[in-house]
Design a protein around this nucleic acid. Structure first.
Length: 546
RNA sequence: GGUGCGGUAGCCAAGUGGCCAGGCAACGGUUUGCAAAACCGUGAUACGUGGGUUCAAAUCCCAUCCGCACCUCCA
């Protein structure tokens, strides 16, 4: 095992930690299930799924835990808004999450704990922190972590204690909180909060704070310390910093390595088509609103606020803000994974994500021509996927025709597979791994195009492709199922009539057989205009929506 | 201000001292009734800028400019 990874705690590249030889334990922070996820949330499951596949392929047992945060202020808010019980809400979004990540070709983790099913362990952990003097109870029945007691506080995010501001707690210093960065381990329930979000505890009815949940669930499933803790970059502080602070005093060092993925970012100025006036005002607006470019959940509300104002009172700056907000809301709409999946295949989203190293930022592209919305880089990935599956179909059809000639590709293919594995061994360099991946497919196509392909070459190509696609989780499905899925989506999206297309294709075939090529080309032009691509093969003509 | 990440060809994106990235788009060719798909080939002094080290720098050192993210719920 020569896998090495970048550890965010030490900022060094280290060998894969294995507390138990032949086994690696991995904890990844999962979603808070209060709504549908957006494409940014898709990155961690995809990245860590590839990590698990790669390690397992090399014979390791990976104990991969990804939690569901089903107890949280945001869930309570949804419950209060809709009148539903929290469990109903969280069940719904857990199902939706599983559906989304399955579409991204992520395999289920070894364990998916829910906070609501780990309350006893959480209470025990809080009690242990209280007993050791790392936490204190306030008059309101809240329990806070005392960050001043933990010497290593700030070591993951590399920040000094005094710089930090409060998080995860309603209190301010003086109102029961001892230090500004102290965070809640247990929050007392308020009268109006739903029954499904309160549990009895030694400190009265309440619910756990966000950070303690992961510490407790990781310990429940992986024991005292584990190998790798993963999650998005933004969780470094405060979430993971707090997990360390909570875990170390009770169970000793938490994770041997930390892996943080970069963000998927949207750039609203890109292709935004703003007017000269808006563009001229952007710099000044950015001064006033530093997070102007960031797509935020409060954007629709803010936009609504502007729309409700008397147009006469709107200044040019306001109008510019409206233009920008409209753009942000538009991006936000397509950022949601469910919506995006209506336009591009989940597997293509996966390939798009893997095209960039997991620690680097990844730009989300959206282009518009008139009414039509497109996602250039993801659509590019989808075309690539079609190529992979086409190649597999071609290879499968050619394998029976293999002969004992001269095998020339066996060694080359083996080397490409080694290069592929080596790229992944180097801190999961999926983008680098796509190089040998591409070369294997080119060689396979070339091999299939030869008249008398060697049987051993064909088998070697098949074995190489099986390995590469299984590790990346890209192009490994049933090709027919893939094309059926993609065609069905495009047909639906463009409101095409498959029966009519089949009819036109038949007419064209008849014309071609009669050697009436002008007529045949006329029909093809008609189909092209509908976005249908034809392929004349030896076994007849097939069509695909492009 | 603090902590990180980055600037590589039209676009996306690997690469951390000498040798090839890869993909998309473009162009030429093989193939095809013509296309499409596939394959082959081509392209551009590609490495933010200025110095330095070295036989050799995208890669190391110094300086500098620019961009991004997080530091408040966020993957």
């Amino acid at each position: 095992m020569s896998f090495r990874l970048h550890d965010s705690l030490t900022n060094a590249t280290i060998p894969l930690p294995q507390r138990t030889p032949g086994e690696t334990s991995l904890y990844v922070c999962g979603p808070t299930v209060y709504g549908y996820i957006h494409v940014g949330n898709a990155r961690p499951p995809v990245v860590f799924d590839v990590l698990v596949r790669h390690l397992e392929r090399q014979g390791l047992i990976v104990r991969y835990v990804r939690n569901f945060t089903d107890v949280d202020d945001k869930i309570i808010q949804v419950a209060l808004d809709t009148g539903e019980e929290p469990r109903v809400i969280t069940d719904r979004y857990i199902d939706a999450y599983r559906d989304d990540v399955a579409a991204l070709m992520c395999r289920p983790p070894w364990a998916e704990p829910r906070v609501s099913e780990n309350i006893a362990g959480i209470i025990a952990h809080v009690e242990a922190l209280l007993a050791k003097g790392f936490a204190y109870v306030t008059g309101d029945g809240d329990v806070y972590y005392d960050t001043a007691k933990f010497e290593g506080y700030g070591k993951l995010s590399k920040r000094q204690l005094e710089e930090q501001s409060a998080s995860e707690g309603r209190g301010k210093v003086g109102e029961g909180k001892r230090n500004e960065p102290d965070f809640a381990l247990w929050k007392s329930s308020k009268a109006h909060e739903p029954d499904g979000a309160r549990w009895p505890s030694p400190w009265g009815e309440g619910r756990p704070g966000w950070h303690i949940e992961c510490s407790a669930m990781a310990h429940a499933l992986l024991g005292d310390g584990f190998d790798i803790h993963g999650g998005g970059q933004d969780l470094k502080f405060p979430h993971h910093e707090n997990e360390i602070a909570q875990t170390e005093p009770v169970h000793g060092p938490m994770a041997s390595a930390w892996m943080h993925n970069g963000f998927i970012e949207v750039d609203i100025e890109r292709n935004a088509d703003f007017s000269e006036d808006v563009l001229a005002r952007l710099p000044a607006l950015k001064e006033r609103f530093p997070d102007l470019r960031k797509v935020s959940k409060s954007d629709p509300k803010t936009l609504q606020g502007y729309r409700e104002r008397d147009p006469a009172t709107l200044t040019p700056d306001d109008l510019a803000m409206i233009a920008v907000l409209e753009r942000k809301v538009h991006f936000g709409h397509w950022f949601q994974l469910r919506r995006l999946r209506d336009r591009v295949d989940g597997e293509a989203i996966r390939l798009w994500i893997l095209g960039t190293h997991y620690r680097a930022p990844l730009a989300f592209d959206l282009a518009e021509t008139g009414e039509a919305v497109s996602f250039p880089t993801i659509e590019q990935a989808e075309k690539r996927l079609e190529y992979f599956y086409d190649t597999r179909l071609k290879l499968a059809a050619k394998i029976p025709a293999g002969v004992m000639a001269k095998a020339t590709l066996v060694d080359t293919l083996a080397k490409l597979v080694r290069d592929f594995d080596a790229a992944l061994d180097d801190d999961l360099n999926t983008a680098g791994a796509l190089d040998p991946f591409a070369q294997v497919f080119t060689l396979t196509n070339k091999l299939c195009d030869t008249k008398r392909p060697d049987k051993r070459d064909l088998d070697a190509a098949d074995a190489a492709i099986t390995h590469l696609t299984a590790v990346l989780g890209v192009g490994e499905g049933d090709p027919e199922a893939f094309f059926a899925r993609v065609t069905a989506r495009r047909v639906k999206c463009r409101d095409l009539d498959p029966a009519r297309i089949d009819g036109l294709v038949q007419q064209r075939t008849a014309a071609r057989e009669a050697r009436e090529f002008a007529r045949a080309d006329e029909i093809r032009a008609e189909l092209t205009a509908l976005g249908i691509e034809l392929r004349d093969g030896v076994t007849g003509t097939s069509w695909r929506a492009v």
